[in-house]
């Protein structure tokens, strides 16, 4: 272990500034979410009459009772949360598979046809056939009203794929050569060397994809027909954006604000807690340690 030099005054001041700035930042960043949580526990009148608050005057769990009451919203909420968790898990794994295999292949600089393929990928990032043609493909493949329709049409994000391709490119070339001399096939190198060395990257894109699947309502809206397959975001949007429907129609009862806020909390917390679990993979030096170990 190395011995640190004694810190200079300048460095101590630097430390103080960094810690102070980041602490203030962290607090400002989290205030909106604290408000949402507070509002989900507040009474309706308090939300309507009190601006931004972090601690409700009267705490009530009525909204959550309704959401989780099986006779009320509960059945739909649990069912759709189940769909969301399932689609997010399966989708993220599928996405990581599709993305890393392709990214690793394209990270080989001397591959024949590489440039054409990269340009094609880039082309799809910029140009898109649009909603209706894609819908026809999904339908034509028999994916309409299946969970696969929530995953396959967006299983690779070209953006994530290109960035992970660059990550792979930066792996030390010597390792691959050494492995291929040892008799490893390219497949072996990918599975045994490239992937384990890219854990921070896998964690990052795993997170990106998971969040993408969790928040994706548009695919569900277009490609699903059966209500019981709806993921949670669709239910969430239905409640949060009800105000627009109520504007057009006096017969529509507006959902209570507290209920909206509680639904947002229920829909956000599961995906929010993914990050702390992945965090250990982001510590500096993890990757290098792996190479040497």
């Amino acid at each position: 272990m190395l011995t640190y030099k004694r810190k200079t005054i300048g460095e101590i001041i630097g430390d103080v500034i960094i810690y102070a700035v980041l602490t203030v930042l962290a607090i400002t960043m989290v205030i909106p979410f604290l408000y949402v949580i507070a509002a989900s526990f507040a009474t309706e009148t308090e939300i309507l009459t009190r601006p931004l608050f972090i601690i409700p005057e009267t705490v009530t769990v009525d909204a959550y009772k309704r959401i989780f009451d099986l006779n009320d919203y509960g059945t739909r909420v649990f069912q759709s949360l189940g769909v969301s968790v399932g689609v997010t898990l399966v989708g993220t794994l599928a996405s990581l598979f599709f993305t890393t295999t392709m990214a690793y292949g394209l990270s080989r600089r001397n591959l024949v046809g590489r440039n054409i393929m990269l340009n094609c990928v880039l082309f799809t990032m910029v140009f898109s056939g649009g909603m209706i043609p894609t819908f026809l493909v999904v339908k034509g493949l028999g994916l309409y009203d299946t969970y696969a329709a929530l995953i396959l049409p967006g299983v690779i994000s070209a953006y994530n794929m290109l960035i992970s391709k660059n990550f792979f490119q930066e792996l030390p070339a010597g390792l691959e050569e050494a492995a291929s001399i040892d008799g490893c096939t390219d497949l072996g190198i990918f599975v045994k060397i490239a992937l384990p060395l890219s854990l921070p990257m896998l964690a990052t894109f795993g997170l990106f994809y998971a969040v993408g699947y969790w928040n994706n309502y548009f695919g569900a809206l277009l490609y699903l027909e059966s209500q019981e397959k709806y993921p949670f975001t669709l239910i969430l949007r239905n409640i949060v954006f009800m105000a627009q429907a109520a504007e057009a129609d006096p017969n529509v009862e507006l959902p209570q604000e507290t209920l909206k806020m509680a639904i947002i909390v229920v829909g956000t917390v599961p995906i929010l807690i993914v990050y702390p679990f992945l965090q250990k993979h982001f510590a500096a030096g993890v990757m290098v340690g792996a190479i040497k170990g």
């Binding site: 990928v121 799809t124 056939g129 043609p133 493909v137 967006g154 299983v155």
Partner: peptide, 15 residues
Amino acid sequence: GALFFILFKFVPMWG
């Protein structure tokens, strides 16, 4: 990956 791009990105490109 190539199959994905062909099916879901290039086929609808007539749009």
